[in-house]
Write a protein that binds this DNA or RNA. Structure first.
Lengths: 227, 227, 227, 227
DNA sequence: ACCTAAACGAGACGGTACGTCGAGTCTTCAA
DNA sequence: TTGAAGACTCGACGTACCGTCTCGTTTAGGT
C-alpha cells in the first residue's frame, strides 16, 4: 500500500480497515493544486535513509524534510507524527515479504525465517523496529497502525505456510478455527520474537545453521522427513 | 548489583567485567563528601515510578530528579544518560528472578516463563524494555550494559534449568560445551523473544494455557512425561 | 532605531552604520512568515519592566520571555544575548533626548544635564547602564552597539548645543574640525561621566543647585552673562 | 587594609566603620588552627589575575579557588560573595594612590588624573570597576563597602590636594565646611566620572595633552599661572 | 608530647539559569 | 489548494556556577 493513496482528507485512515492499495480514482477530485506523488516517495526514501544513518533517536522531521527537498508542512500534511511516518517507511519493506511454496513445511519455514532475518539486518529496520514497538506500547492508534502495516503482513505468511502444508498433506486440516488461530499466534510470536531477540537483543547473527536448528525446534510435533 | 557500588570514578564501570555486587570495603575511600546512598535508591525508585506513569517517552530527567527530591546534577553525576539510568532501574527488577528446582523440566520452564511474563506485565517494564533495546542497537556501551544487567540474569536461568534437568537425568549431560552454549542461546532467545513479542507487540496476554502450549513447543525433543 | 527594522538576516546589524529608523519598504520581502513586530515591542517593554523590578543581575531571558508572552526561542532569534537585548531596550529611552534651543548656552547645558539626570533616575536605566558599560569593556561588538545606540545620541546633543551657541555668537565658530571634535569629546565625557558618577557611584542626587554649580564649572572659559 | 585583618568572626566587617588597617592584636585569640595569611594573599592575587584574563563575567569562584590552590570553602569562609571578594582585590590597587605635593594645584591635579587613568588601564580594573558599581546599585551593603574601600581613598586625594592648595595660598581657606564638602564632591565626581567615561565608555586614551585640557576645564575659576 | 578545636582540601549536594534543539503549528507569498 | 519558507510556542536537554554541606586530614595553640 502506497501512502499516496491517502488523498483527500487531512489525516485519513481513521476508520480505514483494510486500506485499499490502489488510488482507485481521484475520488474527491480536489479543487486546488493536487498533491505531489513524487513528494511522498521522496519523503519515505529520505526517512529510510535518515533512519539508517542516524537511527531512531537521531531522526528529525526537519532533517527528513530537507533530505526530501520538501517543507516540513508538506510532511505534516501527510503524516500526523514522526512515528506514523516511520511506520509507513518501514512497512514498505515488509510489503515485499512473500511465501513461495517450496515443497515442504521445513523449507517454507526456513525461507521465511531467513527472509525475516534479512530484513532485520537492514540498518533502517534495526534502528526503527523496536523503537516503533516501544512507542506503540503507549499509543493505541499507533499500535493499530503498526499491527496493520507491519505485524499483519508477517503473520499472513505463517497462515499461508500452514495452508500450504495442509494442502500438501503435511498437516491435518484445521477443525476448530479458533484453536487454529491461536496456534498460528504461538508460532508467529515465536518466529518473529525469537529472530528479533537474537538479532537485536542478543546481537548474534542468524546463520543458516542457526535457522536449521531453530526450525527443528519449531517443527517439534511435525518433524517431517529429515533433510 | 546495586548502583551504589560505583564509588570512585565519575562514570565508572570502565573495565568492570563482573562488577562485584558488594562494596566489600571502603576500597578507595574518596576524599570529598561521599555520595549519598539514599539518593541512589530514591532516584531508582522515582525512575520506576515515573516510567510506570509516563512511559519511556514521557520520562524526563528533570521529572525524575524532582520526584526523587534530588537535583538534576546529582542524577547526571551518577548516570550519563536517561538510558543508563533506566537500565539500572529496570535491572533491579530482573535481579529478583530465580529458578527454583520444581522437580521437572516442564515445571521449571513453565515457572520461568510465567515469572518472566509477570515482569513484563509491570507498567514500568513494559514502558522501558523495548525502548532500551532500541536505544541499545545504536550505542554499544549501552548495549553491553543492558546485556550485563538485564539479559544475562535471564539467560542464567536457562542454564540453571538445564543443569537441573541434567542432574535429574532428564537430559543427557553436555559433551561439547560450545554446542551446549549455542543450544542455550537458542532456547533463551526463543523464550525471551516469544514472550516479549506476544505481550508487547501482539499485545495478547500470557495465560497458563498459553504457557503450557508454548512449553510443549519448546520441549519438542524432550517432551518428558505428559502431565 | 527600532529593532523591528532588522528584517532579513539572523542577527543582522553587520555593516549597519546609520541604520535607518524606518522600514522604508518591504525591501527584501522574506519568504517565510514575517517576524512579529508586536513581539519586538512586547519584549522590549518586558525587558524594561523586568530591569526596573529585578535589576541587571536578576534579569533572566526566560523571565523576559514569559513577561512578553513569547517563547525563549523567539527572543534568541532576535537578540544574541542578554546584553544586546538590554542595549536596545535602554536605547529607546535615550532616543527621546532632545536639545531645544533655549536661547543661551548655559540654559541649554542645564537642560541637557537635567534631562540626562532624569533618565539616570529611572530604575531600569540605573540597573542597566553601568552593567552594559561593564560588559562592553570585554566585548567589542557589544561596545560598538552601545556606542551607536546609547552614547552617540547623547553626544549629538553636545554637538548640537555647540552649534547653537555658535549660531547665537556665544562661541567662535570652529576653525580646526579635529580640535573641535576633541573639545566636544572632553565636554561630553565630562557631562556624561560626572552625572553618572554622582548618581550611580556617589549615590547623591542631582538637584537644580548642583546642576547650576556644575554648569558653571563647565562654562569656565565662556561664563557668559551671569544669571 | 589587608583582608587578613578579619580574623575571628565568620563574615566580619558588619559594623566596621573605619576598618583599622592593622590586625592590632590577636583580638579574640581563637582556639583552633589560625587562618592562613598566605591563602588570603594567594586568593586576592588569583582574583586579580583571573579578572584580567576572563573579565568580571568570566570570573568564577571555583576558578579563583583553583588558581589560588585553595578550596572553595576557604574562599567563602573569608568573603561572603564574589562581589565582596573583588572589591577587596581591586581595593588594594587603589590603596596605592597618593597625592604628592608637587608645588602647584595644576600639577597636583594632573598627577592625580594621570595616576587614576593609569589604574583604569589595568585590565583587572577595567573588567571589575564598572561591574562593581553596577552590582552596588542594588546591594546597599556592597555599595557601602565599595565606597569605603574604593571611592573614599580617591576622594581623599581631592581633599588633600585642596588642603595643599590652600596651604600654598592658591585657594581661599574654607569658610563653610558644608559648602566645601559639596564643592569637593563636584570636583571629585567630575574627575572620577570623566576619566572613567573616557576610558571605559568612550574608549579613548587619556594622553598627557588630554589631561592638560581637562585640567584647564577644572581650573576654570582658579586658572593659576599658565604653564 | 598530647589534646583539641578550628581551618583546610576535596568534592557531593540542591538550586537556578543558561543557550540549544526538536516537535508540531501557524502565517506569509508564489505557483 | 498545495507547497516552500520560516517564525512561532512549548518543553526538555545537558552544562555551568552558585553557595552550602559533609567528609577526613592538617596544624597550631594550650596544657
Amino acid at each position: 500500500m502506497a501512502p499516496t493513496t491517502r488523498q483527500p482528507a487531512e489525516h485519513p485512515d481513521p476508520p480505514s480497515a483494510g486500506a485499499p492499495p490502489v488510488p482507485l480514482a481521484p475520488l474527491v477530485r480536489g479543487k486546488g493544486r493536487p498533491r505531489s506523488a513524487a513528494a511522498d516517495q521522496a519523503i519515505l526514501d529520505a526517512t529510510r535513509e535518515a533512519l539508517a544513518e542516524l537511527g531512531w533517536g537521531g531522526l528529525t522531521m526537519g532533517d527528513v524534510a530537507q533530505r526530501a527537498g520538501v517543507a516540513k508542512t508538506t510532511l505534516y500534511r501527510r503524516w500526523p507524527s514522526k512515528s506514523e511516518l516511520v511506520v509507513d517507511a518501514i512497512a514498505s519493506l515488509f510489503d515485499q515479504l512473500e511465501c513461495a511454496d517450496l515443497g515442504s513445511l521445513r523449507a517454507d519455514i526456513e525461507a521465511v525465517v531467513a527472509r525475516f532475518a534479512e530484513l532485520l539486518t537492514l540498518p533502517e529496520t534495526q534502528a526503527a523496529l523496536l523503537a516503533l514497538f516501544a512507542e506503540g506500547s503507549r499509543d493505541p492508534q499507533l499500535r493499530r497502525r503498526i499491527r496493520e502495516r507491519i505485524v499483519q503482513p508477517q503473520k499472513v505468511l505463517v497462515e499461508l505456510g500452514r495452508a500450504n502444508a495442509q494442502a500438501r498433506g503435511e498437516m491435518d486440516p484445521d477443525r476448530d478455527p479458533a484453536a487454529a488461530a491461536e496456534e498460528v499466534g504461538i508460532i508467529f510470536d515465536t518466529i518473529a520474537g525469537t529472530v528479533e531477540h537474537r538479532l537485536l537483543v542478543s546481537g548474534e547473527p542468524v546463520t543458516a545453521d542457526w535457522i536449521r536448528r531453530f526450525t527443528t525446534l519449531l517443527l517439534g510435533p511435525f518433524p517431517g522427513p529429515e533433510r
